[in-house]
Each structure stands twice: as structure tokens, then as C-alpha cells.
Amino acid sequence: MNRRIAFPFLTLSDAAVEATPWEVSIDGVEWVEAGDFLSNWDSSSDIHVRRRFKVLREIVAADLSLPIEDLNLSLGVRIGTGQGRLPRLVVSRHTRAVDWENPAWQFESVIKGGMLSMVLDLHAQVTLASSPNRPGVLSPTSVGDRLWSDSVRIRLEGEEPRFPIETADLGQILGGGLQGDAPWYLHWSPRDWNRDFHGAVRLYLNRNAIEFLERIENEDPHTLQLVLADIMSQICERFLVDADADIVETEPGSLAAQAATWLRKAWPGKDVAFIRSVLESRPGVFRATFLSLAELGEA
């Protein structure tokens, strides 16, 4: 369940829904518990997914402050794909009314490999199926109210880690010049702040910077700190230059949302005007703040 959102009605505790971990299989051959990454997939391989759900009536009634005979719920699964924090395309959705005589649901589906791209997104949810007759003051009342949910994102292609990173010859991809000797290069554009963050940025490590690459591979904390601070600084600095930068109303998962998250972490409780004034009048402090924030585990 998305705990960032203050729901205007009661929702279900995790105890109300017994759900096994998602299991996935390439072409139905060998089932494994879903993790961050599914190896050996390509678009000629179909992906089978399965999971068992059981909704516990008594806990639901207590959680939602609804009479036990007044509970009409739906269980649903939405399958999506495409790079980014949100799926680029919803491939299919499956819904089933919760039958209290048999409140378990063994969900299983096959997704054609040709439909998929880079990521498989599995979103499960329980929603209200009909308006209750005798709701409590804070009970959900509208059909479709989201009562419980969880999501997993499974990467399908090895070249796409959580943060897209690639090793390349910077001299070649940046078309020559001094920049080709830089140890790293963040490829991104501030043209569209609503763009999905993971689709909008890619970190290129210079193939020719051997010592630097070794430090990255060895997860040298100071090297990682410098790279992360650079990423945060350049995105946030440019974000603040935009006159309409807003750190409150941003599209979830977007470049703007990521910039806003970093800025809020760097200056908790401060508004855009304050942070912008730091950037303009004390740029050294601005950068130092991100260097500090970038210490592993903070950002």
C-alpha cells in the first residue's frame, strides 16, 4: 500500500490480505520467486506469473469498520511493462470479486514475450466492489476505493539497472572535445520535467578511465559519493533555474518528482524560494549540501 498517501478513508492492514510472493517462470519451465531481475529473458520467451491471495473477512471488517455482511470487495492484478518507475503500458488487467465462501484466489497468467520491454510490472490490489449500506464514519464508501495494494517491478534486461548506467567511450559518444576525457557523463535533458526519471537519465562511465572504473566496480564510497552528488546537484540546480519549479505538485516518478525529493531531503521544511536563494548566493554551500547528502545511504 502506498503509505505516502493520506487516504481519506480506512484501508486494510497487511494482515487482512494473505499473499504469497509473486512467482515467475520463463515459458512455464522453472518457477522462481520474483526478484528485482529475471535473467535469461528475451522477447521470444513468454513470462508466466502466479500468486495466491486470500482475503480474511473478519480482519477486513475490523479494519474498515464495516459490518461483516456488508463487505463486497474485488481483487485485481494489473500487468504493465516499459522502462520507468511507472509502467509505460498496461498490458492487461484481471479482476475477480472476492467470494467469502472461498476467499482464496490462485492467480496465474501468461504474458507474451513480444509484448514486453525491459521491465515487468505486477500490481495487485483490493478495492471496494459496492457501496456499503451501513458504513462507519471513516469507512470507504465508493466503488473502486483502493483498500490494499502492492507492486513489484522486475527488470528483464540486464543492461537496465535501477539507475541506468553504461560504460562507453565518452570521446566517441560526445563527439570529441575535452569532455571526452571526463570520467563520467550524465546524459539527461531539462526539457521535460514530467518525463519519467528512469527514462530521462543515463550515467555513462568512461571506458578509458580505467582507475575510475575500478573504483566504481569496487564500490569505493568516496567515488560513489562524488558521482551521486554530481547527479543530484546538476539536476536540482537546473530544476531551480526553472521559474515554475514546484517541489510539492509533481508527477509521481518524474524527473521533477526526483529533483523535489532530493531538495526536500537536503533542506527539510524549506520552500523553493529559500533553496533557490542558497543556490544563487551560496553555491558552495549548495554543492556541499549535496556532497553530504550523497554519503551512501542518505540519498
Binding site: N2, I5, P8, R93, T127, S142, V143, G144, R146
Partner: peptide, 20 residues
């Protein structure tokens, strides 16, 4: 659009009946 995005966070709009 702003209202739809906010509403969709707490209510699964795409799962509703088309008339609803």
C-alpha cells in the same frame, strides 16, 4: 487532469464500470 491524478491515487478509476 490534476483532479483525475489525485482521485486515481485513492480510487482505481480504470477498474470502474464505463458509465461509472
Amino acid at each position: 487532469i490534476l483532479g483525475i491524478r489525485i482521485r486515481n491515487e485513492v480510487r482505481s478509476l480504470a477498474d470502474l464500470r464505463p458509465d461509472n
